[in-house]
């Protein structure tokens, strides 16, 4: 009987200790990241390259096929391309329309060099993005999907992209 009791005491004490540790860890994590001014050391690391090999392959093709007067940018933040109508100033994070696009990025955006007007977006993915697709359709910016495993040839890409440039 006494052995069972000791066992129970140890079990309860270890459970309590684990819960206490967990709670303390949560508190430490929250306090460490709540202050935006003090990001902890070794929280972040740099990505080795901006583009993965497939994106690099497409970038080379784009550089080759884009006509004079057009350029491209890669990994563009969608919140820099699309604005939300009647957004509450200072409370953007409360707006679900903002939250839907805020952390999204586009693989490539083709822009007119003269005034940096965006004319076309390219996404390297197999299936349409459920968020970006309707948003870009709403704003009237063409979005081209290219399957990463089937990068088109130079000519095929030219036939696909160049006719869309005038529409932007």
């Amino acid at each position: 009987m006494r052995l069972v009791l000791y066992g129970l005491v140890i079990l309860l004490a270890s459970t309590g200790f684990s819960l206490l540790c967990w709670w303390l860890w949560l508190r430490w994590r929250r306090s460490a990241t709540e202050s935006p001014m003090h990001a902890r050391h070794r929280d972040y690391l740099a990505l080795p390259t901006l583009l993965n090999p497939t994106e690099q392959q497409l970038a080379v093709l784009l550089r080759d096929i884009l006509p004079m007067g057009y350029g491209y940018t890669a990994q563009m933040a969608v919140n820099r391309l699309v604005t939300v109508r009647h957004l509450r100033r200072g409370q953007v994070w409360r707006d679900p329309r903002w939250n839907r696009i805020a952390h999204k990025s586009l693989d490539f955006v083709i822009i007119r060099s003269a005034d940096t007007q965006p004319v076309l977006a390219i996404s390297l993915t197999d299936s349409p993005d459920a968020v970006l697709d309707p948003v870009l359709r709403e704003v009237g910016l063409p979005l081209v999907y290219i399957a990463p495993r089937q990068i088109p040839s130079r000519d095929a890409l030219q036939r696909q992209i160049v006719p869309l440039l005038g529409r932007g």
């Binding site: 940018t73 563009m76 820099r80 391309l81 699309v82 604005t83 939300v84 109508r85 329309r97 696009i101 955006v109 822009i111 005034d115 940096t116 007007q117 965006p118 948003v135 870009l136 709403e138 704003v139 009237g140 910016l141």
Partner: peptide
């Protein structure tokens, strides 16, 4: 309409 595209990047 909820969104607009920027005129210039």
């Amino acid at each position: 309409r909820h969104y607009d595209v920027v005129a210039m990047v």
